[in-house]
Amino acid sequence: MSSSSWLLLSLVAVTAAQSTIEEQAKTFLDKFNHEAEDLFYQSSLASWNYNTNITEENVQNMNNAGDKWSAFLKEQSTLAQMYPLQEIQNLTVKLQLQALQQNGSSVLSEDKSKRLNTILNTMSTIYSTGKVCNPDNPQECLLLEPGLNEIMANSLDYNERLWAWESWRSEVGKQLRPLYEEYVVLKNEMARANHYEDYGDYWRGDYEVNGVDGYDYSRGQLIEDVEHTFEEIKPLYEHLHAYVRAKLMNAYPSYISPIGCLPAHLLGDMWGRFWTNLYSLTVPFGQKPNIDVTDAMVDQAWDAQRIFKEAEKFFVSVGLPNMTQGFWENSMLTDPGNVQKAVCHPTAWDLGKGDFRILMCTKVTMDDFLTAHHEMGHIQYDMAYAAQPFLLRNGANEGFHEAVGEIMSLSAATPKHLKSIGLLSPDFQEDNETEINFLLKQALTIVGTLPFTYMLEKWRWMVFKGEIPKDQWMKKWWEMKREIVGVVEPVPHDETYCDPASLFHVSNDYSF
């Protein structure tokens, strides 16, 4: 037999072997998808029940369902290793196997995995149920939502704001400190077992692309791009910072340095994350009609249902689908009040099986009107990829998912749209002054938050990498806050605090 014939037969044999492996992989994935749908849905439903009704029974049910899901994933991840990716030609099959071969938290021992889940659930519970009591009246206690958040959004009393700011960190942050220390250790162990340098590197892996249509993007490039983007917006932020400082000097004349940092408790919310609520103090042309339409919403008797129905109309107007019937029947759109304790931070849920929901303790404000559009943007994205195989139902990356939500809320905030839905009067006219007011309001929300987020994530990356010793977490946190964000702590904090974890995203294990 000629050498060319042998070569042809060899190629046929290799192709047949690849085809056999690929067919086996497809069969394996079909079985996995069928089983995963049910187990993931049960786990998601148990998590939803806990988040909307925080009880010991629900946390136990959530843990049990989560353990079943984790055990299943660990088993299936091991089985998926049997299919070598280099022998799979079908890109859809390869991407699913690649996702499943990534072990995630299931790489930890059973004891450590359970401990990590306990830590995460405990931190979430402390954050959502933590109360601050009035020292003069111990029976008068406030949760973060709505009590403390209400103070931080609306109060102009310097000392009341300081009390709310400090009490939240003292009551909740200190409880979270030992848990967060354990969390860092276990998450790093999980990341390294998955061949990442640390948990920050694991997060950045979400943005990594290897040879898809000839395109590559590394975790290191992400760090470079983040640094570059921050340097680009820094001059604009510094101008905004100086303008806000001048306006705060008028409101709090004896508390603000004309050349120094801004006190952290005066920036519009509990964390200084969004400066939106400073608009009334900083509006350049106050004689113009108010483009913050909160009062109009209240006057027109809007409620949470109306807010979300208007958001749905907005999405339908640009060619996107209505929310499902189940969305309206199962979402929690208002604070249950004293009936039950719930996690009030707005979140969009894709539970699986076409079950999409939003959890939000909606208030009738323009801020929540825009947040509703943001969260519904997440749901629209979830619905758009719902037909994909189970392992591919995700956003391109976390940042893109947020961008989908944010672009919709930005569009909904324009005076033209607000006028079209009757929240600005029919005779409202846009001119240079109203446009400047609008742009300032947008800058308070968007530009003001960028250094906050950059600095927070930089601190977390450094902590996970071990570049900040545990006994210097708070020292470095406030050094970076002053240097990068231009914000100063109103009272000193020692290493018993854990100020970063006083933010939902940190205590609940979300990256930005």
Rank of each mutant, 00 (worst) to 15 (best):
S19F: 02
S19M: 09
S19D: 13
T20V: 08
T20D: 10
T20I: 10
I21N: 13
I21Q: 12
I21H: 12
I21F: 12
I21P: 11
E22H: 07
E22S: 07
E22K: 12
E22P: 12
E23Q: 01
E23L: 03
E23G: 01
Q24G: 15
Q24E: 11
Q24H: 14
Q24R: 15
A25L: 14
A25C: 06
A25E: 14
A25F: 00
K26W: 04
K26F: 08
K26T: 06
T27E: 15
T27C: 00
T27R: 04
T27G: 14
T27P: 03
T27A: 00
T27H: 00
T27W: 00
F28L: 14
F28M: 13
F28S: 15
F28G: 14
F28I: 15
F28D: 15
F28Q: 15
L29K: 11
L29R: 08
L29D: 09
D30V: 00
D30Q: 12
D30E: 00
K31P: 15
K31V: 14
K31A: 15
N33Y: 15
N33W: 15
N33K: 14
N33H: 01
N33C: 01
N33A: 11
H34N: 13
H34G: 12
H34C: 13
H34D: 15
H34W: 08
H34Y: 14
E35A: 04
E37F: 13
E37R: 14
D38H: 14
D38L: 14
D38K: 15
L39W: 08
L39Q: 04
L39E: 02
L39I: 01
L39T: 04
L39P: 09
F40R: 00
F40T: 12
F40H: 06
F40P: 13
F40N: 01
F40W: 04
Y41M: 14
Q42R: 01
Q42C: 00
L45W: 12
L45M: 01
L45Q: 12
L45R: 14
A46I: 13
A46N: 11
A46S: 07
W48D: 08
W48L: 10
W48G: 11
W48N: 02
W48A: 11
N49W: 02
N49L: 01
N49K: 07
N49A: 00
Y50L: 09
Y50E: 13
Y50F: 01
Y50C: 08
Y50H: 09
N51M: 05
N51P: 14
N51E: 09
N51L: 10
I54P: 08
I54C: 10
E56Q: 04
E56Y: 04
E56N: 04
E56P: 03
E56M: 07
E57N: 04
E57L: 03
E57D: 09
E57S: 03
V59G: 08
V59F: 05
V59A: 08
V59M: 04
V59N: 05
V59D: 12
Q60E: 04
Q60P: 11
Q60A: 09
Q60I: 05
Q60D: 08
N61R: 08
N61M: 02
M62E: 13
M62T: 10
M62C: 07
M62N: 10
M62Y: 10
M62L: 10
N63H: 03
N63C: 03
N64K: 07
A65N: 08
A65K: 02
A65V: 02
A65I: 01
A65C: 05
A65W: 00
D67T: 08
D67W: 05
D67G: 04
D67Y: 02
K68N: 07
K68P: 14
W69R: 03
W69V: 00
W69M: 09
W69G: 09
W69A: 06
A71K: 01
A71S: 06
A71Q: 03
A71W: 03
F72I: 12
L73K: 06
L73T: 09
L73W: 06
L73M: 09
K74H: 01
E75T: 00
E75Q: 00
E75R: 00
E75A: 00
E75S: 00
Q76Y: 00
Q76L: 02
Q76W: 09
L79V: 00
L79A: 10
M82C: 00
M82Y: 03
M82P: 15
M82H: 07
Y83E: 15
Y83N: 13
Y83W: 12
Y83I: 05
Y83D: 14
Y83H: 15
Y83Q: 15
P84S: 09
P84W: 13
P84H: 12
P84G: 10
Q89F: 02
Q89P: 00
Q89L: 06
N90M: 00
N90E: 00
N90K: 00
N90S: 00
L91M: 03
L91Q: 04
L91A: 04
L91Y: 03
L91I: 04
L91P: 01
L91K: 01
T92R: 00
T92E: 00
T92I: 01
T92Q: 00
V93W: 13
V93Y: 10
L95Y: 01
L95S: 03
L95T: 07
Q96D: 12
Q96K: 12
Q96H: 11
Q98G: 02
Q98S: 03
Q102H: 09
Q102W: 01
Q102T: 02
Q102F: 03
